Amino acid sequence: MDNNIEFQEPEEELFEHHRFEVPKGQAFLRIDKYLMQLIPNATRNKIQQAATNGDIYVNDVPVKSNYKVKPFDVVRVLLTHPPFENRIDPEDIPLDIVYEDADLLVINKPPGLVVHPGHGNYTGTLVNALAFHFDNLPLNSSERPGLVHRIDKNTSGLLVVAKTEAAMTHLAKQFEDKTSEREYIALVWGNVKEDEGTIVGNIARHVKDRMQMAVFPEGDQGKHAVTHYKVLERFGYVTLISCKLETGRTHQIRVHLKYIGHTLFNDERYGGDLILKGTTFTKYKQFIDNCFKTLPRQALHAKTLGFEHPTTKEFMSFDTEIPQDLKECIEKWRNYSKSNAAEEEES
């Protein structure tokens, strides 16, 4: 494989190296001193540097070295390199294979399935499933078998997997050159003003919360990112849109949409699991809670995928149905919107 062709955003991964739950009887103690007692061969200077870099989290929030731990705190150390050699254990996890031939396969990933090990998810991933169902898949530049690109754990939809070295090289080049085609369906908070538009803004890890990405419009940090969107349907407090990716950055759609004020519906990491638009009426809050229960994840689905076949050179396009949880949530909003419109007409 051409080592100059990179898997999409390998440098953005964070890996959990240490995890501790502070016991009930622990007295308040600076976190640097606390971790020195628990991490073999750790120096206070290294721990303080990790805290300065934003690598030490308490209850999922980055803390400084002078933070004092208290009973039941969950302390985690997250770093950009894996804590051990990448060993993939095959696991018999079923795959929804949309298409397969000698060169590649296209998978419809369900929500909740992590694509590859990381963030404490070292088993039960798509890569573990691929290792069980297929032998000798080629490795990408991040040593992950078969993966050409990825989608987030709680995003559903289409992924292409390479089965040969030649296919890996050819497909990865298309993603790098932006000749592949990807369309996502998203439900976002707010009434999107324009019927269509383009979001341009560099994306890099958030300066305060390394579990999030952020937009840097001045281009002084991060990587160039472009997302095109089009309104499909308006429901008043939320909007159904289509997003086409010109680039493929970590959390690109999620962070770009938040940047323009339209966070994904029920996107917990970016604040979409709160009521961002709407009324204060109790019935409305109950309606939103019901929507969240119906769709317990961010409202994002990778609906279509297109690329040139590495051997036949034919351009192939694939399309999937919107998954049931997202479909039901959209229908709830459609009915709610119609009901509101009818009430306004009567009044």
Rank of each mutant, 00 (worst) to 15 (best):
G236A: 10
Y237H: 10
T239I: 10
L240R: 10
L240V: 14
S242I: 14
C243K: 10
K244F: 00
L245N: 07
E246P: 01
T247L: 05
G248M: 01
R249V: 14
Q252W: 01
I253C: 00
I253Q: 02
I253T: 01
R254K: 05
H256C: 02
Y259W: 06
Y259T: 05
T263D: 01
T263K: 04
L264M: 06
D267K: 02
Y270M: 08
G271Y: 11
I275H: 03
K277E: 05
T279D: 09
T280F: 14
F281I: 01
F281S: 14
F281Q: 09
T282Y: 15
T282G: 04
K283P: 00
K283C: 05
K285E: 04
F287W: 10
F287P: 00
F287M: 05
I288G: 01
F292N: 02
K293D: 09
T294L: 07
L295V: 11
P296K: 06
P296D: 07
P296F: 06
R297Y: 08
Q298P: 06
A302M: 08
K303D: 02
G306H: 08
G306W: 14
F307I: 11
E308C: 12
P310H: 10
T311C: 12
T311S: 08
K313V: 08
K313Q: 10
E314M: 12
E314V: 15
M316A: 10
M316G: 13
D319Q: 14
T320V: 15
E321P: 02
E321T: 15
I322L: 12
P323M: 13
K327F: 13
E328N: 15
E328W: 04
I330L: 12
I330V: 09
I330W: 07
E331Y: 13
E331T: 14
E331R: 09
K332V: 01
K332I: 14
K332M: 15
K332H: 10
W333I: 13
W333F: 15
R334E: 03
Y336T: 03
Y336L: 10
S337D: 06
K338W: 03
A341L: 04
A342N: 12
E343A: 08
E344G: 02
E344S: 13
E344D: 10
E345I: 15
E346N: 11
